[in-house]
Nucleic acid binder design. Structure first.
Lengths: 214, 214
DNA sequence: TTTTGTGAATTGCTTCACAGCA
DNA sequence: TGCTGTGAAGCAATTCACAAAA
């Protein structure tokens, strides 16, 4: 089938973008799309797209392009989102609650099934998002992770406690972390980490502004 | 001073991480730090750090390392965050409000001075974050951008309207966009865009999980 | 000794260009 | 003709390794 040996990491990131655009095309009843069309919509070269997809197999049809519904299914399988994954969230502050209430994860194959926070005023409260979930203390994390077979966790706690909470999550069995705290997490290499730091993004933009004018 | 000609983009992203760690060291009263120490804290090689910094000038002292307070000032100047930038936010939904209430931007040199949303139930309401800001309709964007000399905007609106809102922002004078909507924005190349798509991050992690086990 | 700054070597990623298929 | 898949070429980024400085 595919040559799964060594895929450039940027290619995997782009795969998500392809999927996103394919879903738009599917909703618009497009049956096929060429690498050129897809690239134009995403600001990526057509050769790049063909090469990225070729890392995983042969999906295209010469003279035709890619069949949209077929490619969607196959990309989802590659990303592991053809089946829904249970996700836990730690941190029921403003950001955590906003993330939970975001409808649209489930369409992408992710469902937040548990929320943790150690603030005694929050524990026991029920949050209403795509589903209703009761805030639990982190002491219950081990059992919940086991019972729901959770491997993916979102970390939305303040920076100063992030490392300690991440350690708890990993020790409870979490193997992939989406980190919103502005710190570099130290975790074993059996754990995947993806970080979103708003300040870093703003600084990027600030730098780019400085390149063109004062 | 520096050879500002062609700096690798990844180097600029890392510069933000260096600054973040330097601020931690500064708070802990460290006077100097070596590229090796900095790298160990961030999971980056020492050679990488020296090369990144060298793109912008000579900041280090052989045998000593880098003087922390001095390097902080110089990195901030490079990133353009030595002076505070006014920022506008469009979208006062769950995510937008969470972003606004986040204390910590101002320490990094960014201040959200205006919030826009076209929902009539929201216009006129006052949000209480680091400062109090009244939600305005987007029709007032041109004047506000001009009056506050805003160049940086955060886009936290639903995907289907994101492109239209981005167009408004650019036409009002915004020159850098931090986009949280799950779409690829089409903008002229005089506008810098940085996107955060939560689904893309989760899909990355899902893929990495799939690499090791079922 | 310790540590920087940097040319050289290397690795990794992207683009090119074209054979092959519909 | 239109389009994919892919080796080869080109470009970009990282690591190596060492002279120079404190």
């Amino acid at each position: 089938m595919a040559k799964t040996d060594h895929v450039p990491l940027p290619a995997v990131r782009r795969l998500s973008l392809y999927l996103r655009q394919l879903e738009v095309l599917h909703a618009g009843d497009h049956q096929t799309v060429s690498s050129k069309q897809l690239g134009a919509a995403l600001g990526i070269s057509d050769a790049q797209i063909r090469k990225d997809l070729a890392y995983f197999g042969q999906f295209g049809h010469p003279g035709i392009g890619y069949r949209v519904p077929e490619l969607i299914l196959r990309v989802r399988r590659i990303l592991g989102t053809d089946k829904t994954s249970n996700v836990l969230l730690v941190g029921a502050g403003n950001l955590g609650r906003a993330l939970f209430s975001f409808r649209g994860f489930s369409k992408k194959g992710f469902e937040i099934v548990a929320i943790f926070d150690n603030n005694p005023e929050k524990v026991g409260r029920v949050l209403d998002g795509p589903t209703k979930v009761t805030i639990q203390p982190t002491a219950e994390m081990d059992a919940t992770v086991r019972d729901h077979a959770i491997r993916l966790g979102i970390l939305a706690v303040p920076g100063p406690v992030a490392q300690a909470v991440a350690d708890e999550m990993v020790s409870a069995g979490i193997r992939a972390l989406l980190n919103f705290a502005p710190v570099t997490l130290q975790v074993g290499k059996e754990v995947a980490v993806s970080s979103v730091d708003l300040a870093v993004h703003l600084e990027q933009l600030s730098f780019q502004l400085g390149c063109v004018s004062g």
